[in-house]
Design a protein around this nucleic acid. Structure first.
Lengths: 333, 333
DNA sequence: TTGAAAGCGCTAACAG
DNA sequence: CTGTTAGCGCTTTCAA
C-alpha cells in the first residue's frame, strides 16, 4: 500500500503538507495541493484506516451487536439490518458484526472500545444481557432495536396501535370471536401487543381468546402452530385470529388447514411484520407491515447525529406501520 | 480505556515487559507476569485493537463483500453467512461488512487494505465486477461463494450431481415428462445445473422441457412463477418439475395451483436450497439441501488456514448436498 | 504556506 | 529476565 510519505517524497513536500492537502486544509496553496492530489491519485493512494483510526479516535465503522434467534436467518431482523446497511454504507461507514465471544472474557463494550467503533446498533430481539446493558452506561452512541424495556435510545414499531388496528380490521369484517397469538411476555413489544389486544377486546365487550400463561419467545412458525392448537382446544374455533408475527400466523393457518378448516373461508387470520413469505404462501397473508426502510434510515441518521452532536441520550423512536390487505381475511356472512 | 502504560506504572515495569507478559512471551518471570496480569485484569484492560492492528498488520477481522440480490434478505446467502459468522466468531474474528461505495472511488481491494482485514469472503451471487476481480489479483486471502466461473479459491455445492439426483428421484417416481426451471446462464452454478438436467434427459432419452433462451438471474419466486407459465404454455402440463431454487419451485407450485392443478397430485415438484420456507409452505417442499453448516465451517477453516499458511491459492471446495424428501413429489400411477 | 516534531497505543528487535 | 528504542501510518500543534 502506498503511504503518505511516498507521496511526500514524490511531490517534494513534507508528510504533514501531504496530510493537510489530502484532508482539505485551506492553508495549503492551490498548486501544491493539486500536485499532491494528482500524485496521490496516480499512485492509487488510500489512507490507512487503521492509522487514521488510531489518531483520530474514530473509525468510520459502526458496530452491530446481533444476537438474535436464528441469527441472520431471521428475516425480520435481517430485513432491518439490510435497510440499515444500505443507509450507513451510503454515508461511508462499514458495519462491524461484533462477535459475542464470551469465553475469552470479551464483552461488547470493551470489544467496541477496542475496535474503536463510532456507534453501535443493538439488535438483540429484546434480550437484555449484561453485556448489552453495559453499552448503555458507556460513552458510546448506542441505539437498540426492539428493546426489552421501553426506554431512551431505542427504536421500534408502534405495536400498540398496530395490533389495535389489526383487531379493528377483523372486527369491522364482522368477526367477534377474535383469538390472539401472543409473542414474548418478557419484552416490551410482546407486552404492548398483548395489551392492545386486551384493550380492544375489553372495549368491544368481546371474549378474550388467548393463552395468558404461554410466552412465545421466538415468534416462530412452530410456536404459532402450537398456540393455535392450544387455543382451538381451549376455546373451539375462533372466527378470526390476530397474530403477533407472520410466521406464527402461517403456523396457525397450517394448523387450521390440517384440521380441515379453510382460511379465510372459516377463519380469517392476520399477521405482523410483512416478511416476503407473506406473498408466496397460500392464502397470501394480510398483515401489518413494519417499515423496514424507515427503521434503517432512522437508525442510521440517529446514530450519525449522535456521533456528530456528541449526544448520548435520545427519546425512543417510534415507527409507524401500515396494514397490508391480502387474501387471508374475509368478511363474515 | 486503560492502556498498557498505566499497567506498566502500576506494576513498576516497562511497557514492553507488560506487552510481553500479556502476549505470553516465555521470557518473563512467572511472578512479574502474574503481577502484571492481575493488575491488567483488575483494571479491565483490553488491548486497543487499532493500535495492535497497525503494528501487527493483522486485525483479526475478515471482510465480507456482500453484493447480492435482496441483500441480507436473501435467505440463501444469509444462511451461509450466518454459518460462517458462527465459525469465524468462535475463532475470535469479527466480520466487517464492506460497503460498496463506488462513488467515493473506493474499491473493495483498497478498502480491504485500508481497513487491514486479514481475509475476505466474497458473496456476490456469481457477479464478477471489476472490484471483485481485483481482490483476486491481490495478496489477500480471498474465497468466493458460488463464483461466476469455476476456479480456484471458491466454494460451492455440487450442483451437477445434485440436479442429476433430483431428476433421477423424479424419474424413479415414474415421471417421464420432467420440466426444468433454470437459473442464471451467466454463472457457473446456473450452467452446471442446466448441464446436469440436459445430460439426464439425454441419457434417459426423454424430451427436454425447459426454456433455453430465458436466464433467471434472481432465483426468485416471481421468476419461478413466470417460467412455469411459459413452460406450460410451450409444452403443456409436465409430470414433474425440477427447479433450481426453492423460491422458484414455490412460484411454480403456485402457478400450477392457480391454474387448477394439484401438487403433488398432478405434478411433482422438487426444489433446491432447503430454505426454511420449505417447511411452512403447502405442500412441504421436497428439495436438495445445501449444507450451510459445511459452507460456514469450510469457508472459515480455509480462510484461516490461508492466513496462517500464507497460502493464496487453493483448489475449489465442493460441498455435498442431500435430498430432503417432503410432500411435493409423488409416485406416478 | 510549509515543515518539524510529538504522539495515538502497541510490538519487537536489541541491549543490558 | 527486563528495559530502551524505534517504529506502524497518520494527524496536529507549533514554529518557521
Amino acid at each position: 500500500m502506498v503511504t503518505i510519505d511516498e507521496i511526500a517524497k514524490l511531490s517534494k513536500v513534507s508528510i504533514s503538507t501531504v496530510s493537510k492537502a489530502l484532508n482539505g486544509y485551506t492553508e495549503i496553496s492551490e498548486k501544491t495541493r493539486k500536485r499532491i492530489i494528482d500524485i496521490a491519485d496516480e499512485l492509487g493512494y488510500m489512507p490507512n484506516a487503521t492509522a487514521q483510526s488510531l489518531v483520530r479516535k474514530r473509525s468510520n465503522t459502526v458496530g452491530v451487536v446481533y444476537e438474535v434467534q436464528y441469527g441472520l436467518k431471521n428475516l425480520f431482523f435481517s430485513s432491518v439490518l439490510e435497510a440499515f446497511r444500505k443507509n450507513i454504507e451510503s454515508k461511508g461507514y462499514d458495519i462491524l458484526l461484533l462477535s459475542h465471544n464470551t469465553d475469552s472474557g470479551l464483552d461488547y463494550l470493551r470489544h467496541c472500545q477496542s475496535k474503536n467503533v463510532d456507534a453501535v446498533l443493538v439488535v438483540s430481539g429484546g434480550d437484555n444481557s449484561d453485556a448489552i446493558h453495559k453499552l448503555y452506561l458507556s460513552q458510546l452512541a448506542v441505539l437498540t432495536l426492539d428493546p426489552a424495556e421501553k426506554g431512551p435510545n431505542s427504536i421500534f414499531s408502534d405495536s400498540y396501535h398496530s395490533i389495535k388496528r389489526s383487531c379493528k380490521y377483523l372486527y369491522d369484517l364482522g368477526h367477534k370471536r377474535i383469538a390472539f397469538i401472543n409473542g414474548s411476555y418478557t419484552n416490551f413489544i410482546g407486552r404492548e401487543r398483548l395489551r392492545a389486544y386486551l384493550d380492544f377486546i375489553h372495549e368491544k365487550g368481546l371474549e378474550p381468546l388467548y393463552l395468558a400463561e404461554r410466552s412465545n419467545e421466538k415468534y416462530s412458525y412452530e410456536e404459532g402452530y402450537t398456540t393455535m392448537k392450544m387455543i382451538f382446544e381451549a376455546y373451539g374455533l375462533p372466527e378470526a385470529v390476530c397474530s403477533v408475527s407472520d410466521l406464527m400466523a402461517i403456523g396457525a393457518i397450517n394448523y387450521l388447514y390440517n384440521h380441515g378448516f379453510s382460511v379465510p373461508g372459516d377463519v380469517s387470520v392476520i399477521g405482523f411484520d410483512d416478511l416476503q413469505v407473506c406473498e408466496i404462501v397460500t392464502p397470501k397473508l394480510t398483515t401489518i407491515r413494519q417499515d423496514y426502510e424507515a427503521f434503517g434510515e432512522l437508525a442510521c441518521d440517529t446514530l450519525l447525529g449522535m456521533i456528530e452532536g456528541k449526544v448520548r441520550k435520545i427519546d425512543p423512536i417510534i415507527v409507524d406501520t401500515e396494514i397490508i390487505v391480502r387474501d387471508s381475511c374475509r368478511k363474515r356472512k
